[in-house]
Design a protein around this nucleic acid. Structure first.
Length: 112
DNA sequence: AGGGTGACGGGCC
DNA sequence: GGGCCCGCCACCC
């Protein structure tokens, strides 16, 4: 019950809104969940999400456009792979935020 | 009831 | 650009 009672659940709910083919930063997700200026909270919530979660955790990257896992790690490769499958590629180890960053209030069809 | 534990980000040098 | 510092809070023993 009370699905949104926990802070982490609010963060997960915000992440669930990120459309396929787009990404959001930890800070952005935190703000969307109602915790502006607390990007770390988003990180904590993600670190705590269930193994079998259905939320698109791979769409959350850091403010530099990088995946927040050690480049050699399995987690890094997994995230990179999932993003690639959605059409989001890393160039030079980075996602082009200007192009792929999700903009919650400006994603109307008119703006393409 | 405390203390350990994190998938960040911005400011500075 | 890269590295360091420091703020910051929920959750689980």
């Amino acid at each position: 019950m009370s699905p949104g009672s926990g802070a982490y659940e609010k963060v997960w709910a915000a992440i669930a809104r990120i459309p396929r083919g787009k990404v959001a930063t930890y800070g952005q997700v935190a703000a969307l969940a109602g915790f502006p200026k607390q990007p770390r909270l988003a990180g904590y919530a993600l670190a705590n999400c269930p193994r079998d979660t259905k939320i698109p955790w791979q769409r959350v990257i850091n403010a530099q456009g990088k995946i927040s896992f050690p480049p050699r790690s399995a987690a890094y490769r997994r995230q990179k792979s999932l993003l690639a499958k959605e059409g989001v590629a890393l160039m030079n180890g980075r996602v082009d935020l200007a192009r792929y960053r999700w903009q919650p209030f400006s994603d109307s069809p008119l703006l393409d």
